[in-house]
């Protein structure tokens, strides 16, 4: 069984209130020195059999049409794992 990991991030110009909340919480626990936190999404897609180039191409298409909204998000990684 093969797996493909897709990572999606909000575009840099889109405000990320969740990331900001995390950033503000870090120093409260003593984690100082971080200037920015951006929170994204990670998807793991499993297939029966190997991850062929064709599978990868289909995942890329799914990432661009369903897993991300190109108005506000970028697909930053589509990677074969395992």
């Amino acid at each position: 069984m093969g797996r493909v990991v897709v990572e999606v991030m909000l575009k840099p110009e889109i405000l990320d209130p969740q990331g900001q909340a995390v950033l503000n919480a870090l120093p409260r626990l003593g984690f100082d020195g971080f200037s920015l936190v951006r929170q994204g999404k990670r998807f793991e897609l499993s297939v029966d059999g190997e991850v062929t180039d064709e599978v990868l191409a289909r995942v890329r298409e799914a990432a661009a049409t369903l897993l991300s909204n190109p108005v506000i998000e970028d697909v930053v990684a589509v990677e074969r794992v395992g």
Partner: peptide, 15 residues
């Protein structure tokens, strides 16, 4: 999301 209208709706800025 259906592309009938442009843009997107995101989390309120004040969270």
């Amino acid at each position: 999301e259906s592309h009938l209208l442009p843009g997107a709706l995101v989390r309120n800025d004040h969270r």
